[in-house]
Computed example of a mutant assay.
Amino acid sequence: MSSGATPPFDPAPRDGAPGVERPFVTFAEPETYREDTARVRPFRGRPRPRALTAVACVVLGLGLIGGAVTGSWLTGDDTDEPGSRGAFAAAGELWHNVPVDRLFPPTVRGDGAGPGGSDRTWTRIAVAPDTGCKNAFDPLLRQALAPVGCLRLLRATYVDATRSHVTTVGLLFTKADKAAMTSLKARFRKEGLDRRTDLMPRPYAAKGTAAEDFGKAQRASWTESVLTDAPVVVYAVSGFADGRTVATPQPAAEAMKADSTAAVAQAGLGHEARGLADRVERSLRKTVTSATEKPS
Rank of each mutant, 00 (worst) to 15 (best):
R85D: 11
A54L: 15
V59T: 12
T79Q: 05
D77L: 08
G83C: 03
V55A: 15
L74K: 10
L64H: 13
G66V: 02
G67M: 07
D78G: 06
S72M: 05
G61N: 12
E81C: 09
T70H: 14
T53G: 12
G66F: 03
G61M: 09
T53A: 15
S84D: 14
V58S: 10
P82K: 12
G76F: 00
G67T: 08
A56Y: 06
D80C: 03
T70C: 05
D78R: 02
G76H: 01
G76L: 00
G71V: 00
G67A: 13
I65R: 13
T53I: 14
G63W: 09
L60E: 01
D80S: 05
A54P: 02
T79F: 04
L74Q: 12
L64T: 13
G83M: 04
V59C: 13
P82F: 14
W73A: 04
D80Q: 08
G61V: 05
T79R: 07
G76Q: 01
V69Y: 01
A56Q: 06
E81Q: 15
L64K: 13
V55T: 12
A54W: 10
T75W: 04
A68H: 05
G63T: 08
G83L: 05
A54I: 14
D77T: 08
P82W: 12
G71L: 00
A56I: 06
G76P: 00
L62N: 14
V59H: 10
A54H: 09
S84Q: 15
T79H: 08
A56S: 09
A68L: 05
W73F: 07
V69K: 01
P82N: 13
T53Y: 04
L64E: 14
G76A: 03
S84C: 08
V55E: 10
